[in-house]
Write a protein that binds this DNA or RNA. Structure first.
Lengths: 334, 334
DNA sequence: ACAGATTATGAAAATATTTTCAATGGACAT
DNA sequence: ATGTCCATTGAAAATATTTTCATAATCTGT
């Protein structure tokens, strides 16, 4: 970035007006005589002047940039959200600073602070859970932050979610209806908060069916990408004696499915699977997996839309938005 | 973003030194007496001073920010690259401004210009192809740009690639070895340049086997996400009379596989498939698809590393880097 | 103790915009 | 003519840093 070639000053000189006037036409301020507006616009085109967003940001205290914190772009669940965020962001002329956090609390805090140092006008935070430390860090700033598909224990921060408890309840209920007596609940170990909610929905379904909650049917698996494929879910899950499983993450559901089939187990006759989360991944595998389908793109889009409102201090009556989900009955359940 | 709470000026006053000195300690300049360094650092900690990256960028003409242009974050091939880019970027303390382009030339130019307006220190461009118009736009700036997994017809811009021609050659050769007489080549219609290269590798293999290139075996499919699932690849491909296919994109390979199986065709006995591209997707489906495995993460990482060199005007002896690929023989071929 | 060399520090300019406030100019009514 | 009002314009301050250059402080060797 060499000393900027064409500045607002060059345009002003060339057009015979002041910088203030150039600034006005660049920003669409109506208080400019049409003839001067035209004159200035012509010079801008001729010189190919492009306003320096950094100088702008300094002078105006608005960077038209938002920070997006994502556990891992490589995870289709989150990248689908990110796509919704970016589309709405560019619709409102915002740029996205993206940072991967690996869902690691320490890294989340680090990247949050780096995006804040960049003077972003707002932040969208996606995470598996919102840890107390991150929560504290968010409270420290007055830059608006909205959570996308991320639960906050206190439920105070603006967020866009679906009703996870209900979704898990539905999933469990279906498996119960199909006559399964022992149903495993498979989730990630780091998902503490959602986990609890999930466990709640699972528990509620179990108990409403007149059975009692059995802790040993809850299987927690590491989310470490490297070991994803190596862990033998199938054995772990089968050991519980379950004949069906509600799996929180579709990647896990797929791996479980493939491993079970490899063992010669028939899906859904011998074992039923419901995934509590979808991503485009789930459409790729056969037999098709029954799953909760969350409006991923919309979760991101609505989160970004809410953020634009917060950034403009618009009336923010609704800072907690729950989007509806669907239940997609497929071939991994009877 | 209210008037910044704590500025360098506050720290200077509080520590009884000048702004210049605070700037020095913040930037690790060695010309500061250890005792004053300590004094200033203490004040920084006490006041929780966080340097304003925008003011910094204006004064120093470095934003420590790079623009990343990606067709679609939702495409795992590219998001895997993006992850490599981000990891190396944060290793070198750069931030990422991410923009989706949909591989659309007009949008590519638009987002390129918006990231340039943000005064990024460099740009990583990922695309299916590099159109002439985009090429021209890139030539207009002197901000360094590196292409990741994207071919430039003139082969002048810095780029990180694998040998696509060779990869397609290998894929085709295997299918020929397996005794296939008619092999379809399935690719995206927008992939003009790579397409040619692919066609070249395909052609070369065919001709080396003493057969002649048959245009009718080249099947181009739209990359439009919405219609991805609707198009009936299987019929289109089977109509060519082929008994095997080299598919450029793993998403297409998977859809083709699933559609063929649905038709009762046995893979690989009745039909063989090789995917010329991998992404984490490909590991999810059964039977496992034989494919070229590109070092996706590394392509991104190396591209970003090269960009850091270009941004620092280091000796850039190698601006064209070709990474090795592997061939993963699986169950969709005999 | 002193010259010279180095190290440490500060004042002020520079960075490219926006924003505020004052000034100018023209139209229109009197 | 003259004053009033509104639209238009410009000058200069403000924004939070880095950087340059000059000066002050400290050290080193005699």
């Amino acid at each position: 970035m060499a000393k900027q070639t064409i500045t607002i000053y060059d345009v002003a000189r060339e057009a015979g007006v002041s910088m203030a006037t150039v600034s006005r036409v660049v920003n669409g301020n109506p208080n400019v005589k049409p003839s001067t507006r035209k004159k200035v616009s012509d010079v801008i085109d001729r010189l190919k002047y492009r306003p320096n967003a950094v100088a702008r940001g300094l002078a105006s205290k608005k960077t038209t940039t938002v920070g997006v914190i994502i556990p891992d772009v490589t995870n289709m669940y989150f990248s689908s959200l990110a796509r919704g965020i970016d589309d709405i962001a560019s619709m409102y002329n915002y740029n996205i600073i993206l940072a991967n956090s690996d869902g690691d609390s320490e890294k989340e805090i680090r990247v949050l602070n780096t995006v804040l140092a960049q003077q972003v006008d707002g932040v969208i935070f996606m995470g598996h859970q919102l840890s107390a430390e991150v929560r504290k860090e968010i409270d420290l700033t007055d830059t608006p932050v909205v959570l996308a598909a991320t639960l906050d224990e206190q439920d105070e921060l603006p967020n866009i979610t679906i009703d996870y408890e209900e979704a898990i309840y539905d999933s469990t209920a279906l498996l119960l209806e199909n006559g399964n007596d022992k149903i495993a609940l498979v989730g990630m170990d780091i998902d503490a908060i959602k986990q609890d909610l999930n466990t709640a929905g699972y528990k509620r379904a179990i108990e409403e069916a007149g059975k009692s909650f059995d802790e040993s049917l809850v299987v927690k698996v590491s989310s470490d990408r490297k070991t994803l494929e190596d862990v033998n879910f199938a054995d772990i899950v089968l050991e519980t004696g379950a004949t069906a499983a509600v799996v929180e993450d579709d990647r896990f559901a797929i791996i479980l499915l493939n491993q079970l089939i490899e063992k010669g187990i028939n899906i859904p006759e011998d074992f039923e699977i419901v995934s509590a989360k979808n991503s485009p991944l789930i459409d790729m595998v056969r037999p098709r997996i029954t799953s909760i389908t969350q409006p991923l793109y919309d979760l991101g889009a609505v989160a970004m839309r809410l953020l634009t409102k917060l950034m403009n201090d618009e009336e923010n009556d609704e800072i907690h938005i729950t989007l509806p989900y669907k239940f997609s009955k497929q071939d991994s359940t009877k």
